[in-house]
Structure formats: structure tokens, C-alpha cells
Design a protein around this nucleic acid. Structure first.
Lengths: 197, 197
DNA sequence: ACCTGAACACCGTTCAAGT
DNA sequence: ACCTGAACACCGTTCAAGT
């Protein structure tokens, strides 16, 4: 059999979801496809680039609802869709976060956030900082969730419904910190806030 | 030569800082100490536990200034000291963040944050969420910083003074989100804030 | 208590060669 | 364009045995 780039990514996604990131090796993937591991290097120059393609595919397959009108609803929607996309695959958060940290992925969510924050009226010099802070929160939170999820799934019985996922609560925290800095007519006033340092 | 646990950690810290996390292997560390890699398993049951001990040591060697009186200054101080501790060793953020994600490290900063936030009057159900959100921010931010730092250090000339480290700005964002939820007499009032979702 | 020596079961990547 | 076969230079971990 002869494969294309997308076949390899598809199968990699299957191995990831079934066996986890630790077992997603070039050799294992080669075996799964019935080809030599060296053949994979025809499609991807390095494993890191293969994983970046897998991360992109995870994001592409995630939900993409309509963009809400309010800037802060749009920020929340982007973060929630990013979370849902990563939760759909085992170790999805780690794959996407790693790809992002190498500057190879998650450009779309970042750009979405930057756009929404700028439109919201956040001071321009804070926009990239706020966007990255949101991404750090989402990656960190969902990685934790996924780690504890699989740790829990070993112990059979407790299908614990998650500590009522405090994702929304944490996101609300960061979002309110951003709202404090936005001069809008809809609500929060900045009064006694004093900068750290 | 015969070594103790702490000698191994000390040398591991040296290898980490000089060659980076990717080169901190059990075999490499054994060679560096002049012993067989298998001898390391007398001191640590797994590599993961060795790295947890390294993470603990990185945190223990970090700065520990006096605890400020105000709860929010204490939160900021904990985050800044955590950052400084991790920046002091190459790949320090990744080592500490990984150890934390396995539930093996960073308990002290977490407890500090929980203490300060509770004293500040943050609603009890938000305290763990806020503490974890702060840690996610710090780990994510400093990991980014360190990655781009070593990426930059390859290109010799530009000792770029960092994009004026927006750590304080990001921390201020999250902290203000927390302040919004604290009923204190010193400043911010919650008015139009509406929860996400 | 701390270490050796040898083995087991793996890795990512390169490269000449095949179709 | 896509793949084979073989090699290179590694991994973490186990275990019987030594001092």
C-alpha cells in the first residue's frame, strides 16, 4: 500500500487516541501502516513535524460554532472550542500545547483571540499578552483535566463526573481581569486597580 | 566513588543546566558520575522520581523573600519567586511543570497561593481554581520564555533583552480577575461582571 | 548500602537502493 | 513518489552478582 500525508496523520490520530502519546512512535506508526518506519520520513522530515500536523488536524476537527457578537463571548467561545477539540483525543492537550510551544500550531486560536481582544478595546500593548495568557490557561487546565482523567480511568469504578469542571470558572477569572482593562460602557469600571510590581 | 541521593540530584542539576533536559538521561548522568546507569536505580525508582527531586531542588534553591502583608502582594511574590527559581536553571520551567502535572511537585507554591487567596477573602469554592489558574499562567509563561530564550541564544548576536518580559502584565491580568471576586474595601468593585457560560 | 555487567525491549533518524 | 533493509547512535529498566 502507498500512503499520502493525510493517511499517515489519520492513522497517527488513531494510534494516539487508542494507545496514547507515549506509544505514538515512528516505529509503532510504521507497523500500524504496514510500512517501514523510515518510509514515514518521506512524508514528514521529523517526528515533531508529524506531531504538528496531528495537532493541526485535532484543531481542524474540533467544533467551529458561529462567532458571537460580543467580544468577550467570542473570546470564551474560542477557548471553549479549543478545549473541546483537545478533549476529543487522548493526550490532545499535550500534543497541541507542545506544537504551540514550538511555534508550529494553534495559530488560528491565537489569531481569533487577538482579533476579539483588539475589537473589545483592550489596549494594544496588552492584546498579545492577554491572548497568550488565555492560551496558557486553556492548555494548562485541559492538560490537567486529561491527565487526571486517564489516571482515574485506570481505577475502573469511579467514573467521577469531574470536579464539575472548573474550566468556566477559571476562564471567567482571566476574562474578568481582561474586562477590567477594557474601557467599555457595558459594565465593569476600573477604579482601585493598581498594577502588580 | 559512592554517592548519596543528594549527590545525584546535584549532578543532575549540573547536567540539566549545561546540556538541557533532552540530554539529562539516566545513561548520561551515570557517565557523568562515573557509575553504571543501573546504579542510579539504587537512589531513585524511576527517572520520573529523579526529575521530581530535581524539580524540588530547583524550587528550594529559588529566592524566598519575606511574605508581604497584603494578600495580593503575597500572591504576586509567590508567582515571581516561582518564576525566578525556574529561570535559574535551563529548562527549569519544563522540569517543574512536568513534576507538578504528575502531582509530585510545586506543592509549596500551590499551598502558598491557596493560603493567600483564602486570607484575601476569595470565595472558598474559587480558591483552588484561582491557585491552579495562577500556576498554569506561570508555568506556561516561563516555559515560553525559556524556549524562546534558548532559541535566541543559538543566534549569538541578539542578546535581546526579552520583549520587556510581560510576565508582570499577564500576572496583573489574572490577579485583577481574582480581585474582582474579592469583597475587600480597598478598591475594585464588582458591578457589571457577568459569568461566562 | 551502593555498585557492576549484561541483557531486554525499545527509540529517532539516515541512506543507499529498489519500483 | 513512495517504500525497503540495514545500520547508527542512542534510550529506561531489570536483575543476578559483587563489596
Amino acid at each position: 500500500m502507498r500512503y499520502h500525508r493525510e493517511d499517515v496523520v489519520e492513522r497517527a490520530l488513531g494510534v494516539l487516541d487508542t494507545y496514547g502519546l507515549a506509544d505514538l512512535t515512528m516505529r509503532r506508526l510504521g507497523t500500524e501502516l504496514g510500512i517501514q518506519p523510515s518510509a514515514l520520513y518521506h512524508h514528514f522530515a521529523t517526528k515533531q513535524l508529524l506531531l504538528a500536523a496531528v495537532a493541526d488536524e485535532i484543531l481542524a476537527r474540533g467544533p467551529h460554532g458561529p462567532r458571537p457578537a460580543r467580544w468577550d463571548d467570542r473570546v470564551a467561545a474560542t477557548c471553549e472550542e479549543l478545549r473541546d477539540a483537545m478533549l476529543a483525543y487522548r493526550d490532545g492537550a499535550e500534543v497541541v500545547a507542545t506544537s504551540y510551544s514550538f511555534g508550529l500550531g494553534a495559530a488560528a486560536p491565537y489569531d481569533d483571540l487577538v482579533g476579539a481582544l483588539a475589537e473589545g478595546g483592550l489596549p494594544a500593548d496588552l492584546v498579545p499578552t492577554a491572548a497568550r495568557t488565555l492560551l496558557h490557561f486553556v492548555f494548562g487546565h485541559v492538560s490537567d483535566e486529561q491527565t487526571h482523567l486517564q489516571a482515574g480511568s485506570a481505577g475502573a469504578i469511579d467514573d467521577d463526573p469531574l470536579p464539575a469542571s472548573d474550566f468556566a470558572a477559571g476562564l471567567g477569572l482571566v476574562l474578568d481581569g481582561i474586562r477590567v482593562r477594557v474601557a467599555d460602557r457595558s459594565g465593569i469600571e476600573k477604579r482601585g486597580a493598581r498594577p502588580v510590581t
